[in-house]
Design a protein around this nucleic acid. Sequence first.
DNA 1: TTGCTAATGCAACTTAGTTGCATTAAATTT
DNA 2: AAATTTAATGCAACTAAGTTGCATTAGCAA
Lengths: 127, 127
Amino acid sequence: MGIVRKTKSVQTLLTIFENTEVALSSANLVKELAHSMNKTTVYRILDRLESQGLLHSFQGFDGVKWYAKCQGCSKEHHNDRHPHFQCRDCGKTECLSADFNIPELSNHKVEYAQLLLTGQCAACAQL
Amino acid sequence: MGIVRKTKSVQTLLTIFENTEVALSSANLVKELAHSMNKTTVYRILDRLESQGLLHSFQGFDGVKWYAKCQGCSKEHHNDRHPHFQCRDCGKTECLSADFNIPELSNHKVEYAQLLLTGQCAACAQL
DNA sequence: TTGCTAATGCAACTTAGTTGCATTAAATTT
DNA sequence: AAATTTAATGCAACTAAGTTGCATTAGCAA
C-alpha cells in the first residue's frame, strides 16, 4: 500500500467517504472542509486515496471531478467499471451497480471507458 | 432555426468545424482564435451553435468541454447518442459511429447518457 | 439609409485546480 | 522518551476555463 500517514485530515476524509453511499465532488469537499483543512490538502489527499485504491474518480457533466469509495480496488488494479448517475434536479451523484459493455472498435485500442448518465433519481422522479 | 446572424466570427467557426472530422475543445479554440475574436465570443458562439443543433458537446476526461458537428440534429432534437474517444497519446478526440446501449435501471429515470472512451487511436496504436 | 437589436469586445470576476516552498507532525530509530 | 526523518500540510501566488455586465458594433429587415 505504500508509505501513508494516517493524519487527522486523511482520517476525516476517510470517515466522510465511509459514511456516505454517494459520490462527492472535490470542489464541494473543499468548501465543506474549509474550516478544518486547506484546499490543497483536500486535493492532495483525494489524489493519494485514489492511487491507493481506496477511492475512484470520474468527471461529471459539470466538468468537476467526483470521488466515491471503491469496492474491491487495489493500488494495482481499479475495478470500477460501473456507470455513474447525476440527478439533474437534486444533483445527487452515485455509482450504479449495473454493468455496461464497451463497443467493439477495430481501429481503436480502448483501455478505459466511462459511462455517465443523467436524468432523475428515484426521489426526484417519485418512483 | 431562430434568429441568427451570420457574422464573420460565426462563419469562421462554422468553417473550422466543416473542415474537420474530429472534436475540438472550447479552450483550444479560444487559444487558436485569440487573434481574430474575443474568448467570450467563442464561448457564446459555441453555445449558440449547439442550441441550434449544428454542434453537440461533451465533457472530456480532462474536464474541458468538447464540440463536434452534428449529423441529423435539429434545434428540437439532438441525435448524438454515440460514444466519444480521446487518445491518451496524441489527444485526438473524435465521435465514434458505433452505437451503445444504456443499462436498464428500475429506480432511475435516465434521460441522457454519455459514453467516453480512452486508449490509443489507430495512428498511436499503429493498427 | 435608417433603425432595431443580435452579436461582439472588454474588463473584471468566479471557480476549479496546481505549484513551490517553508513548516509541521506522523512514524521510525536510538 | 527524545531525536530523527520525511511525508504531509499550510499558505500564497498562480493558472486555466469559463462567466457576467455593460457599452459599442454591425447584420439585416423595413
